[in-house]
Design a protein around this nucleic acid. Structure first.
Lengths: 331, 331
DNA sequence: ACGAGGTCTTGGAACGTTCCATGCTTGCTG
DNA sequence: CAGCAAGCATGGAACGTTCCAAGACCTCGT
């Protein structure tokens, strides 16, 4: 059970510990004979370098911490894939931890990461307050993802939500819609920008914005949609704040016996995998998820390696994905 | 940027490093005056214990590694929640890494975990070969989840897949079905047991098992369903190996203009969140996911603390969730 | 007034690496 | 054949903790 150390290997190979260390790190700088001896001894003993000791002396762990607010959100899973991928390519490892949609637990997760001395931190859909995150950023590079900030200390990468919302509206308008309601998610991360994009595009076409408050959840979307139906003033299209909310709205519309898109068009946001299921087939706004993750890694490593000091805020454009929930308005 | 160490705190507080260490670990054993001084100095400096150094001397990291084969599988996300929860309660942290559905990359993830000297390892839906995993288990406690094994070195926790499959068949038979096809996923983790449970239950009712090979994916389910339709011999019910496959089958059935459950009943396995969506509403077999995770942590810590030596294989029962894709057979 | 016993506190040796300055061989140059 | 560079190998210090044996200081009973 006890793991062999570099000293055990050195002894068995008849060389010094320094040489073993060198073989592990830069084998080409060691003579063939020594290298073979060390490698063989290591294999025989089942030696595995102790990353803990290495991190201690190097003062680098080679680990990028990722705190994601919710493991179940497939959006984060895609982003995390991009992160792991990019980190791996650059010789780093990613270590994930969940915040369980709870700011307190998220804080705990961050604290743990700091104690473990991760080299950089990526926060996915964080629920913590910006000043708190800024304090964290004073001891290591931090990149915020899926949330906008103008902070001078924090890097961020996000999608241009306003542009995405405008695309959604443009799409509906081009189909002939003029009564387009937007369900918004209050001040939840991302919602204000989507809302302002919606309003901007509506006004550009001389249309009257109509807002209903919902949330980024299925039930939030359902509640809002019910409110719309109950108002007696049925719009020809609904633009939801995300796919989950759209799903909730879809259920309510179905239950009311209305047809999508015959009676009402529906557009979501996020392009979750489930939006592509044939029975759902939701028109929505897609985001280059894995790219977001890669970009975040990039930002962190940029600070780590080249020590850039000023914050960078990367914004990538979204794209419209047309499916079967949007069509011409009912006549 | 440079982090303060225990020595900095000691100096500022005018005490020895040992005392600072003690305050951090067992504050009650230190005099009030010293404790206050140390705590204040630590706060002023923004001191944060270095877990790397601590792990080195303790020869324990307090981290449980979790390698999951796929971050996107919501099943794993639920299990991982249970793991993080249980680990936290016991004073451990969970560290996640994805294997990207690729045995080689999974091996890399495991290797990384070992180098980081995690105290225990939980493998979710591993794609590695059992002997390889057993070799890993010789240096730390390993629990296998979502996969069965009789290994003498490995602990495992799983759902009784055979029982679940039998429940599915019983349900269909009780509705009056006798022509029930099972799409199986070959030798993929879990499939053989589901298949044998299916066969067992069929025979118990004097029915002829009919198998079609598919996979644990949407496309695998679609392909198999297409084969069933093309055979010209339409069964009255289909039992898929998991919900994704059921979804694929559902699409094909829809596309063929057949009604579910009017023309054909469909039962999945896993009870994913999407199976509960009104438009999907899939009858399926549910599993107590978070409990599986908790149980795995339990097994690992049992070995870690009490040094149990023999393997334990925990099996928990599944439960049938009836929704709208199952009904009486067409007449 | 002294020793026993208790409470707090301390210095130093680990833990398993990396990194650096230095040393030992060779072989080559002039 | 002295001198020196190149190539390889080495020992020791450092990284920031924990843990332990032992020291310092009190209090109290006799």
């Amino acid at each position: 059970m006890k793991q062999p150390t570099i000293l055990d290997v050195a002894e068995r190979a008849g060389v010094s510990k320094s040489l073993v260390s060198l073989v592990m790190r830069e084998p080409e700088r060691v003579s063939d004979a020594s290298r073979e001896a060390v490698l063989q001894a290591a294999a025989e003993l089942g030696y595995r370098p102790n990353a803990v000791a290495r991190s201690l002396v190097r003062r680098r762990t080679g680990v990028i911490g990722v705190v994601l607010s919710d493991l179940h959100n497939p959006f984060f899973a895609d982003v995390a894939d991009g992160i792991e991928e990019a980190a791996f390519e650059r010789g780093y490892r990613a270590m994930l931890s969940s915040g369980f949609l709870n700011p307190k637990r998220e804080r705990g997760a961050v604290e743990t990461m700091l104690e473990l001395r991760v080299d950089g931190l990526i926060m996915l859909g964080s629920m913590m307050k910006v000043p708190k995150i800024e304090r964290v950023a004073s001891s290591l590079p931090v990149a915020l993802l899926g949330r906008h900030t103008r902070s001078k200390d924090l890097d961020s990468v996000g999608v241009d939500d306003s542009a995405g919302a405008q695309e959604a509206v443009e799409h509906l308008v081009s189909l002939g819609h003029s009564e387009i309601v937007h369900i918004h998610a209050g001040s939840a991360a991302g919602s204000p920008r989507r809302r302002s994009g919606y309003e901007k595009a509506m006004r550009r076409h001389g249309l009257e914005p109509r807002l209903v408050k919902g949330a980024f959840t299925e039930s939030g979307g359902a509640k809002a949609m019910q409110e719309i139906l109950d108002s007696g003033n049925l719009p020809t299209a609904v633009f939801a704040p995300n796919d989950f909310a759209a799903l909730g709205a879809m259920e309510v519309i179905d239950a009311a016996g209305l047809d999508i898109p015959g009676d009402i068009s529906l557009v979501g946001y996020d392009n979750l995998a489930l939006a592509g299921l044939p029975r759902i087939s939701l028109t929505t706004i897609g985001q280059p998820r894995a790219d977001l993750g890669r970009e975040a890694v990039h930002l962190v490593l940029e600070r780590l390696d080249g020590d850039r000091k000023s914050a960078r805020h990367v914004v990538v454009p979204p794209n419209l994905v047309v499916r079967n929930t949007s069509g011409p308005p009912r006549s």
